[in-house]
Amino acid sequence: MTDSGPGAPERSARVLVIDDEEQIRRALRSVLQAHHYMVDVAETGGEGLELAIDRTPDLIILDLSLPDMSGLKVAEELRTWYVGPIVVLSVRDGDADKIAALDLGADDYLTKPFSAGELLARIRAHLRRTVSGEASIREIRAGELVIDLARRQVTVSGEPAHLTRTEFDILALLARNADRVVTSRMMLEQVWGPDYISDTQTLRVHVSHLRHKIEPAGGVPRYILTEPGVGFRFVGDEGTAS
């Protein structure tokens, strides 16, 4: 994925890693420092909460299984004041805790084991959002897809795609949050507004129409992936790393 801004993610942002496992802390510290992030590590939830207040990190990586308190509890307490992105680490796909963490305000999750490429892509995606702000992004490109956010126009392989207003809003929301999961609840709130009572079924119908218009033929989505039980994820060019 590319955006109109300069290579902002590589500035020395501060990342706090809360994980009880020494090996993971060491590995993350080494990977993140190699990419010029400033890294703080905490072994327990309590320590993590203190460091979060102390150092005000730009992003927090939080393991859900901690010795002193549940990672969910940590996420919940962080969210009472912390506005930066929280990326949760979990052991398993479809882990109920993972979904609960998103509900409590975590922004994304990664399933262990993950590659450094995956982790860095997610961190960049989240920091880009906080650093550059949404207003400065005018155009998003991914594969054959070009989304002109200013003109509200979408082209696929150079051909214009005719999206409804709702479809465009959904696509724009997902694309601005490329490579991170967007929960159904968040989509309903952002696209329809907090007062509008709608359900995930309606959302799925709109996403399905949107897919028909922008996804390649063959019925298999390449840009908008379903995150079962959670929501959707827009796959930018970076997200293809595996």
Binding site: S208, R211, G218, G219, V220, P221, R222, I224, L225, T226, P228, V235, G239, T240, A241, S242
Partner: peptide, 26 residues
């Protein structure tokens, strides 16, 4: 779910080097 949604996730999981070998058509 639509089967396509599931296949989208399956496609993502194929190692990049092998991806062009797999043809999806539903």
């Amino acid at each position: 779910y639509d089967l396509g949604e599931v296949l989208g996730t399956v496609a993502q999981r194929i190692p990049v080097g092998q991806r062009q070998r797999v043809r999806f058509g539903i």
